[in-house]
Design a binder for these strands. Structure first.
Length: 1046
RNA sequence: GCCGAGGUGGCGAAAUUGGGAAACGCACUAGCUUUAGGAGCUAGCGGGAGCAAUCCUUUGGGAGUUCAAAUCUCCCCCUCGGCACCA
């Protein structure tokens, strides 16, 4: 018997498979395409990790199974070679990443071939290949052009010792053992040098993933993914349903108001009389001039009239309705000192109306000095009626783009904000604190308010805050707090009261204090909260610490029946819900009833943040944008409407980010230059920022002197679209876009995606987002790239996560050398369910080695000796025994098939072992059954199965019968099982007495209860236990058991 | 604190529409094979009692539902993973 020389066999078949291209489907012509995708590795270390192999093998078994089921399986592989992992590795070993990439590539592909997967080798890709990142940059440009990329200042984690920006994952978050074993808490420190991390503000690029928050969340219900990954995504997106509620600032009413009516209006029309009364009631001086020539107005004339008759000081609020808003803007432009606030109700900048033209359109030049206006007004509120059929919605945006301010969208009482009572208008004329709450039903229990440190009101109310210095000091301290301090302080709440300011609870009109505290985060909700100590643990802690009231004093004009959940605070717990009704509504209804009662607005809020794309690093694709001073001016002037012609050549991204110009497609890729010193720079800039030849360039728009962006993009962008590239590599039709649409339509979305659960929220969310965005741009025909995703478990070693410091990293190479890839593959899959992960221990692999040896031995000792001579006779001679033996074979087919489909590879392998045990015992083993065993084994041990299969073919089929083409076992049809053969005619009837097994008999499957009982009571053992007594009850479970209850 | 997964022999695990707990494998023990070994074959292998037939007991702990619970319900403990002052 020849020796089972796995090294030779494995190398041989790997070579032949590759030569014969049995894993390279014809991507254009395939009839039953199946895209079997697995997450590609980042080649950041010495080589492939056994954890990678675990994942790839598990995915490959599924692919091989699908191939045998008749699908044209496409199973590509590549390297996620860009990014911080690879760069850090290069830094660590002191080799330039460009050089290291070549070394890693060779090593990784060699290892990837050794594991015996059915990879489509012709379609490899590496993310650092300019041919690839050209398209990564192209995608960035598309995002930019479609307004999905923008620049924003944001604080980043900065390690002062390593002089580099750190990703959140690189900041120590948990109590960890430090390298020199001190048991210290290193929260908020750099993972490499353990220096406390500080915050540094940098301008960076973001992708608007938040725009897709709702879709990303909703689609989760439609896709078949590992449930835990879906849950992680749901939590990450973090939907919360709640309401925005405005709290009036007591004394937020300004001393003086000037209200300007619109075209054909008057001080007695619309909401003007009511508004005047409301404001005067609160002690304000209100001036509502009747503007001259209201039916055929001249704007300059009205402006002059207002300037002459109205008084403006720094506490004046100016409101303009419709044309009054235009007049108001002009008035502000002419002032020589600032006013407190400008409220634009249904205002506009251009005379473009939805209905008809108006006489004042032509007599005015529609030019404004926006810079001056901005200087002359401290806060701006832009009210937009969602049902306005006079002024287009876009006008509000235009005002905001020109002078800033806040847009308030609402449905006015009457069209074009012309109701006699318009509460939203009033609210915006007086000072307001807007809060977001998911519990509006606790509104009656709000006893104070808290603003986040960065809340704009802190500065805007400066003049009214009597302890401003104290407040400012606190705010400054909070902003400078490092991550470490913030977490360390943990539960101990801090804060400062804004003295001189009171807010009014709109539910009960009670005056409540306003605080600023860092437990309220400025970028969450509205950046301010109503504090309800009776219901919220955090508010309770804060209230206790600063002696704030825990429950409100209910004013007599609010009846207790209106109160929902005021709550009773009590010591220790702080939360006792006192539920009630509100105006006859209960619970859920009351919650929203209150929102309506106080004029709030229902709102769904998401926790998801926009995707920060910029990396101040070297090893990534340079971002394909160029900054041009000249174009900045042009793009900005677009906002002021000074030159309509020139802005037409700018795309949305260029207009939204003045000065930033996309690199045109023909100039892509923007190649990453070779930079000798690729280490991160100390200023929070990419190493490219010191390469003059790189950043000095010409503006693609105007040809003037310009500067390239020197940051590179996040690695997650590389991996967010790689699956689109694989099938189109070297396709002639991919040229203007990165993929061939015909092929993409055929192969995508992917049939199966397999990868680690550690990517649940980043990679797996980004891929989905990008697909949605590209679909909306018209480049793709689907929005979910992976309708089916399975997360494999984590492979640990000797009970612990593999890590270099623990020294328990397993290198697959030595195991492959020692035991063979087939043995290692099967051992990894046999450990535990694939989706659970497993613990790699040396000892167990021998069991698999024995199994494979026995499969080999069985062939050479029993099968091979029988074929060739009179094979067919042989089968006929033993046909009588086939059916009995076939039963277990068919049961195994069923078991293995179902187990593969459910990724229960461990039990599939166990079933194969049981089958082998049976076959060894069987005196005359039919060849056909052995062939079935081989086919079932093929996905798990592809080399051995192929070797024996080929030997079988050459031994049993005479030369002239043999087909000329190479017939791999991996293209054989997957065995089908015969249900009739599986069905048993008899079964072991279990006899229980009081639930305990006492006996068993083999009986026919179709036995009735009566027949069973008759048999059971004849049994000696049963008689012994009954001892003449009559049973209380007899339970009969068909084809299972009889339970006699005594 | 919140969310998720899990806890079964010496070890990895199997059994989940409630119906024989421990399949399959590792390790171990004994024997066989004139036997160099991480080789092969046979048998045994949760714990306790017994020469044995057999009996009792056992799925993190406690309670419950049921003829019957690893599986369902409630409470508690532990391990791992994720999120974390999200209003």
């Amino acid at each position: 018997m020849p020796k089972y020389d796995f090294s030779k066999i494995e190398r041989k078949w790997q070579r032949i498979w590759r030569q014969k291209k049995i894993y390279e489907p014809n991507l254009k012509k395939a009839k039953k395409p199946f895209y079997n995708l697995m997450m590609f590795p980042y080649p950041s270390a010495e080589g492939l990790h056994v954890g990678n192999m675990y994942a790839f093998t598990g995915a490959d078994i599924f692919g091989r199974y699908m191939r045998m089921k008749g699908y044209n399986v496409f199973e590509p592989i590549g390297l996620d070679g860009f990014g911080i992992h690879s760069e850090n590795y290069a830094l660590q070993i002191g080799v330039h990443p460009m050089k290291q990439a070549k070394i890693s590539k060779k090593r990784f592909y060699k290892q990837l071939e050794m594991i015996g997967n059915g990879f489509a080798w012709d379609k490899r890709l590496e993310t650092y290949d300019p041919e690839y990142y050209k398209w990564t940059q192209w995608i960035f440009v598309q995002m930019f052009k479609h307004g999905l990329a923008y620049r924003k200042k944001q604080a980043v984690n900065w390690c002062p010792s390593c002089k580099t920006v750190l990703a959140d994952e690189q900041v120590l978050q948990k109590r960890q053992e430090t390298r020199d074993k001190r048991q210290e808490v290193l929260v908020g420190a750099c993972e490499r040098c353990e220096t406390p991390v500080v915050k540094k503000e940098l301008e960076q690029w973001f992708f608007k993933i938040t725009k897709y928050a709702e879709k990303l969340l909703k689609n989760l219900d439609k896709i078949d993914w590992s449930e835990k990954v879906k849950i992680a995504q749901r939590n990450w997106i973090g939907e919360s349903e709640g309401a925005l509620i405005n709290f009036e600032i007591a004394g937020g009413v300004a001393p003086s108001y000037v209200l300007l009516h619109g075209f054909t209006g008057s001080p007695n029309a619309n909401f003007f009389p009511w508004l005047k009364k409301e404001l005067e009631k609160r002690g304000a001086k209100v001036f509502v001039p009747a503007l001259p020539n209201t039916d055929n107005p001249s704007i300059p004339e009205q402006v002059e009239f207002v300037l002459k008759n109205a008084e403006f000081n720094e506490n004046t609020v100016l409101l303009g309705h419709s044309l009054g808003s235009v007049v108001g803007l002009k008035v502000i432009e002419k002032l020589d000192h600032p006013i407190k606030r400008f409220v634009s109700a249904a205002g506009f900048l251009e005379p473009k109306f939805k209905d008809h033209s108006r006489p004042f359109e032509k007599s005015f030049d529609w030019k404004f000095d926006f810079e001056r206006i901005k200087k002359n007004v401290r806060t701006i509120m832009i009210l937009r009626d969602s049902s306005d059929d006079v002024v287009p919605e876009i006008q509000a945006d235009k005002i905001q783009q020109a002078i800033g301010g806040e847009i308030i969208d609402f449905k006015a009482e009457d069209n074009h904000i012309c109701g006699e009572v318009e509460p939203v208008v009033l609210k915006n004329c007086i000072g307001l604190i807007k809060v977001f709450t998911t519990r509006p039903d606790t509104l009656f229990g709000a006893t104070y308010m808290v603003l986040g440190s960065e809340h704009s009101l802190v500065e805007n109310l400066k003049s009214q805050i009597t302890n401003y210095k104290q407040v400012a000091d606190y705010v400054k301290k909070t902003k400078n707090k490092s991550e470490a301090e913030r977490i360390e302080e943990g539960k101990e709440k801090t804060g400062v009261e804004l003295k001189g300011i009171k807010a009014i609870n709109p539910a009960n009109n009670e005056e409540i204090p306003v605080w600023v505290a860092d437990y309220v985060l400025s970028d969450v909700g509205a950046g301010a909260i109503m504090a309800v100590p009776a219901h919220d643990q955090r508010d309770y802690e804060f209230a206790k610490k600063f002696n704030l009231p825990l429950i409100p004093v209910i004013k007599p004009n609010i009846t207790t029946s209106q109160v929902v959940r005021v709550g009773n605070a009590y010591e220790g717990r702080g939360v006792l819900i006192n539920s009630g009704k509100f105006n006859g509504m209960d619970s859920e209804k009351a919650k929203w009833g209150i929102v309506e009662f106080v004029g709030g607005e229902k709102k769904t809020q998401y926790r998801l943040r926009d995707w920060l794309i910029s990396r101040q690093r070297y090893w990534g694709p340079p971002m394909p944008v160029i900054f041009c001073e000249n174009c900045k001016k042009l793009a900005e002037s677009y906002k002021s409407y000074k030159s309509k012609r020139s802005y037409r050549s700018y795309n949305q991204g260029e207009l939204e980010n003045p000065g930033w110009i996309a690199v045109p497609g023909k100039d892509l890729p923007v190649k990453l230059p070779y930079v000798k010193d690729f280490r991160p720079k100390s200023k929070g800039e990419s190493p490219l920022s010191s390469v003059k030849e790189f950043y000095e360039t010409k503006c693609p728009k105007c040809g003037g002197k310009a500067r390239r962006e020197t940051d590179v993009s996040d690695t997650f962008l590389d991996s967010a679209w790689y699956y689109l590239r694989y099938p189109s590599i070297r396709s002639a039709r991919a040229g203007t876009i990165p993929w061939d649409s015909t092929i993409t339509k055929k192969w995508l979305p992917a049939g199966m995606y397999i990868g680690g659960a550690e990517h649940a929220v980043l990679h797996l969310l980004y891929v989905r987002f990008l697909a949605m965005a590209l679909k909306d741009m018209g480049y793709l025909h689907f929005e979910e790239p992976f309708p089916k995703f399975r997360a494999h478990g984590l492979l640990i070693s000797e009970g612990a996560k593999m890590s270099k410091s623990k020294g328990n990293v397993v290198n697959p190479d030595e195991y492959i050398k020692k035991f063979g890839a087939d043995a290692l593959r099967m051992y990894l899959m046999f450990l535990a369910p694939f989706e659970q992960g497993g613990d790699f221990r040396d000892a167990g692999i021998l069991g698999i080695t024995r199994f494979l040896e026995r499969v080999w031995k069985l062939f050479h000792s029993r099968i091979n000796t029988n074929i060739g001579t009179n094979n067919t006779n042989n089968i006929r001679a033993i046909s009588g025994q086939i059916s009995e033996h076939s039963r277990i074979v068919h049961r195994t087919i069923k078991k293995v098939t179902e187990d593969i489909e459910n990724f229960r590879y461990n039990t599939a392998i166990s079933a194969l072992m049981i089958l082998l045990n049976e076959m060894e015992k069987h005196p005359q083993l039919p060849i056909t059954n052995y062939q079935l065993l081989l086919k079932l084994l093929a996905p798990f041990a592809p080399h051995l199965a192929e070797e024996i299969w080929q030997q079988l073919i050459s031994a049993s089929i005479s030369q002239n019968q043999r087909k000329s083409a190479f017939e791999s076992i991996h293209r054989e049809p997957w065995p089908k099982y015969d249900l009739k053969l599986i069905k048993e005619e008899t079964f072991m009837l279990i006899i229980q007495i009081n639930g305990k097994v006492r006996d068993q008999i083999e009986v026919n499957k179709i036995i009735t209860q009566k027949e069973a009982e008759a048999l059971v009571f004849e049994r000696e053992r049963v008689k012994m236990y009954l001892n003449g007594k009559k049973p209380k009850k007899i339970i009969f479970v068909p084809s299972r058991l009889v339970n006699i209850v005594m």
